[in-house]
Amino acid sequence: MTTMDDDRDGLASEYVLGTLDADERAQAEALMLVDAAFAETVRRWERRLGELNVLVSPVEPPPAVWEAIKGKLADVAPSESVRLPEVPPAPPRAAAGAEIVDLTQRMRRWRGLTVMTGTLAACLVAVVVMREVRPELLPAAWQPKIQVVERVVERVVEKPVEVVREVVREVPSARPAQFVAVFQKDEQSPAFLMSVDTDKRTVTVRQVAAERLADKSYQLWIATQPGAAPRSLGVLGTDDYTVQTTLASYDPAVVSNATFGISLEPLGGSPTGQPTGPVIHAKLLQVTPAQNP
């Protein structure tokens, strides 16, 4: 088994175990949607660890829970469901024909751009799913309160009364809309996963199966309008994760509709200010609904 397979298996195993942070969970879930092999790896892990539930003591939920569920059944008759299943029977690209057409047009534009900049780039396949992944993720009761939460204290407790240590971190004033984009190398292998926090306007790019070349750099681009020249969001670092704050000057509404590209460039980035090497594209998938505080 190769290192890359180990990495994907490790990601799947930790997703199922539950130790990934919110960002990594969103990326793993996006990966499951576009990569049937990864989804299968996750299912295998669910099967391996799933029997542990036998040892959990049952706890009766209050009767009001069933009343609430029953009350909502009428709204969500299964035959009318358009939501993606937890375990997709088929890759979503088969169901997203119209969007793929739209994407193909976008790709042609990018191809045109690349030609215009003087370099004929071999565009790699971009598979993009423009679909709200989980619109029902959070019920209204958990949506962020209007007041500003300045900071949060997470306590890890050894025994019910004994506080071991406090971890203090800043949280945004409202829950950010979380977007994920998958940059496909080909139909089977995502090369990069990108997540965008439109509230903090940061971009995190994770190299999944991108080739690491010692004498080349990957560069992230944004095209805010069809036909507009892409603008650089910076050169990706050599680590697994790169966090960029270069979205700060863009409007969140623009960001959520933009097309993103990653190009292969000479070491240190494009010398011309435009992509000069092969480009992979993606659009954002919304994984949690945007909030209007």
Partner: peptide, 10 residues
């Protein structure tokens, strides 16, 4: 359970 109701077919 709403998700189970919706996705039992899968």
């Amino acid at each position: 359970y709403l998700k189970i109701w919706n996705n039992a077919g899968s």
